[in-house]
């Protein structure tokens, strides 16, 4: 087992070396001419305003919570998958029971609309008589009536 994870470890080391090697090599050969404008965020030529970090929609949190539950479910699937072949139909139906119970929860969150995305609710400007209309237009309208 350790030797198999040793392969994973070799891949990890290779990944670190690959990224670090690329960065160090480019640092060695690139020209170095820093000036302050290079540090600003490029926003289509506009002056950047405010912070980069914005507040995200709260909807993401509910989805992440639901994801976490099914993440734990997947963890249960792994040991089952290794013995599935030996135990046959019995193991299959046991896992089906497991999945169906969780599917109830899935149906619940679907039905309750937790999976629906928040759509923006645009405020359509409603015309109210006399408000936001120039006086002479109002007069014309009055005349027309």
């Amino acid at each position: 087992m350790l030797t198999e994870f040793g392969r994973v470890f070799i891949f990890l080391i290779l990944g670190v070396v690959f990224v670090a090697g690329g960065l160090v090599f480019s640092w060695l050969i690139r020209p170095n001419r820093p000036y302050p404008s290079k540090l600003t965020t490029y926003e289509c030529g506009e002056e950047p305003i405010g912070d980069t970090r914005v507040r995200f929609n709260i909807r993401f949190y509910v989805v992440a919570l639901i994801f976490l539950i099914f993440d734990v479910e997947v963890v249960f699937l792994f040991p089952w998958a290794t013995v599935f072949k030996g135990l046959g139909w019995f193991a299959f139906f046991e896992m089906m029971v497991f999945l169906v119970i969780l599917f109830v929860g899935y149906a619940y969150v679907w039905r309750k609309g937790d999976l629906d995305w928040d759509r923006p609710t645009p405020k359509v400007p409603k015309y109210e008589r006399g408000i936001g209309v120039r006086e002479d237009h109002l007069m014309e309208e009055e005349v027309a009536l």
Partner: peptide
């Protein structure tokens, strides 16, 4: 464990719902 996960799912959705 499946039932526990189900309870956690419904509870989390109920509390976190806007």
């Amino acid at each position: 464990a499946s039932v526990v996960l189900l309870v956690a799912l419904i509870g989390a959705a109920l509390i976190a719902r806007r």
